Amino acid sequence: SLEEAIRRAEEALRKGQTFEYAGIRVTTQEALEKFRKWAEKQK
């Protein structure tokens, strides 16, 4: 689910890792916010 993907992205960010979902790379807090906004639109 998208909620699960967001949780995994947050977890990866805390560990300093890269999270990738549907071709979207989350490597920074800013990218995480963009990913969250994108995920909201997918619902």
Rank of each mutant, 00 (worst) to 15 (best):
E40S: 08
E3A: 11
R7F: 10
E11Q: 08
K41E: 15
L32G: 00
A5D: 03
F35S: 00
Q17S: 08
W38T: 01
F35D: 00
E10S: 06
E20Y: 09
T18H: 13
Q29L: 15
R14C: 10
T28L: 05
R36I: 15
E11S: 07
F35G: 00
A12G: 03
E3Q: 11
L13G: 01
S1K: 12
R25Y: 12
T18A: 15
K34T: 10
K15S: 12
R8E: 11
E30H: 08
T28C: 06
T27D: 15
I6P: 01
E40G: 05
T28Y: 02
G16R: 03
E20A: 05
E20W: 08
E30G: 07
T27A: 14
A31E: 15
E33L: 09
E33Y: 06
L2K: 02
E30L: 10
K15M: 14
A39R: 03
F19Y: 09
L2N: 02
V26Y: 08
L13H: 03
T27E: 15
G16D: 04
R7W: 10
E20V: 11
R7K: 13
G23F: 04
E4A: 11
Y21S: 02
L32H: 01
E20K: 04
L2F: 10
E3T: 11
E10L: 06
R14W: 07
T18Y: 15
F19M: 02
T18I: 15
K34E: 14
A22Y: 08
G16L: 04
E33R: 08
E10P: 01
W38I: 02
A9I: 05
S1M: 12
Q17L: 15
K43S: 13
T28H: 05
W38D: 02
E40T: 06
E30V: 08
A39N: 02
E3W: 11
K15E: 11
E30F: 06
A39T: 05
A5I: 15
A22D: 09
G16E: 04
T18P: 14
A9P: 00
A31V: 06
E4H: 09
R7V: 09
E20D: 06
E33G: 05
K34Q: 14
A39L: 11
G23N: 06
K34P: 01
E33V: 09
G16P: 00
R14T: 09
A12Y: 07
L13Q: 02
R36Y: 06
I24D: 01
Q42N: 08
T27G: 12
E10G: 05
L2R: 03
E20F: 08
E33I: 10
G16M: 04
A12R: 04
E10W: 06
K34V: 13
K37L: 13
L13S: 01
E11V: 07
A31M: 12
A9N: 01
T18M: 12
R14N: 10
E3F: 08
L2P: 05
R14A: 15
W38Y: 04
A39W: 08
Q29N: 08
E10I: 09
T27P: 05
K37R: 14
A39P: 00
E33K: 07
E33W: 05
R14I: 09
L13R: 02
W38L: 04
E3R: 10
R25G: 04
I6R: 02
A22N: 14
R7D: 06
E3C: 11
E10R: 05
A5N: 04
K43Q: 14
Q17G: 11
E4C: 15
E10H: 05
Q17K: 10
E3N: 10
Y21G: 02
L32T: 00
Q29D: 07
E40K: 07
Q17F: 12
